[in-house]
Every structure is written in structure tokens, then in C-alpha cells.
């Protein structure tokens, strides 16, 4: 899923549970739960990062902007919201190190968690953008309701 949706989901977990011992591990697990939902993306082997980077850049910028807004809105839970957002979106950092594997659809040399991360993303497709938008609206509505 997009970094924007992972970030918003992390914030929702933090704001609904408000208990770091529960929210922090759940935020990390949520990354893989979200990736199991069919979502926007390019399947491994068809990915050309040089063409894809504009989408990634736009997504990361949106995620960072929304994270900033949420941290201002909920500054009484600043560190919890920040930590949950970081842990929820963070696991995708590994794809930068494994970008060659993604481009060539080659799983050799991947660590165990990344193998699982690859496997759980069973459906990435362009029309998945509709699912991303629906998820974004749902998370946005929850956040506004929690305000």
C-alpha cells in the first residue's frame, strides 16, 4: 500500500488504543495486514524505478505532510502517534535496498522478513488505486471522528 495509507493507519491505531505497549507492535503488524489487501502498485519484474519514482515521491510527500498535520492536531500524543506512523510505514524502507530484486523479480538474498513481506503482497495492480482511495477516506473519517 502507499506510504500515505500506512501512515494514516498507524495514526488511527495510536489514537484509538492510546497505549504504547499495544499500539506500537500493532502498528508494525498493520503494515503487513494492509499489504495483504489488493492495492496499487506494479508487480515485481514489471517495476522500473526510473519511471515509478515520481509516484513514490508524490506518495512520500503526501505522507510526510499528513504526518506533520496529524502531529500538530494530536500533539498531546505526539510520540505515540509519531512512533506508530513510523513503524506502520517503515517496513517499506527495505525495498530501497532490495530495489534490484524487485526490478528483476529475483528473491535471492532476501532476509526472512522481506520474503514474507514480498509474499504477502499477492496483488498489486493499477486499479488498486481505487482501493487506496477508499482506505484513505475511511482512515481520514476515523481520524476526524477521533479529533
Amino acid at each position: 500500500m502507499t506510504a500515505t495509507n500506512h501512515t494514516l493507519t498507524g495514526a488511527v491505531i495510536a489514537l484509538t488504543l492510546k497505549n504504547p505497549a499495544l499500539a506500537v507492535p500493532l502498528a508494525f503488524v498493520s503494515h503487513f495486514v494492509l499489504d495483504a489487501i489488493p492495492h496499487f502498485g506494479v508487480p515485481p519484474g514489471q517495476l522500473v524505478l526510473k519511471k515509478y519514482y515520481k509516484i513514490v515521491a508524490a506518495d512520500l510527500t503526501t505522507a510526510a505532510l499528513l504526518a506533520g498535520i496529524l502531529l500538530i492536531m494530536f500533539n498531546n500524543h505526539f510520540w505515540l502517534v509519531f512512533g506508530c506512523m513510523a513503524l506502520s510505514a517503515g517496513p517499506d524502507i527495505v525495498w530501497w535496498f532490495y530495489r534490484k530484486n524487485l526490478e528483476k523479480d529475483n528473491k535471492t538474498g532476501l532476509d526472512l522478513l522481506t520474503r514474507f513481506h514480498w509474499w504477502i503482497q499477492w496483488k498489486e495492480f493499477s486499479k488498486g488505486i481505487y482501493i487506496e482511495v477508499a482506505w484513505f477516506i475511511a482512515m481520514g473519517a476515523i481520524i476526524l471522528n477521533l479529533r
Binding site: T16, A138, A141, I142, N145, L146
Partner: peptide, 12 residues
Amino acid sequence: LTIKEPGLVLPL
């Protein structure tokens, strides 16, 4: 139990 707003809860 977490959201409590019927208009949101049932679709979610």
C-alpha cells in the same frame, strides 16, 4: 467499541 459513530461504524 473504538469509533462509536454509527454512520462510520457500520460501513467500516
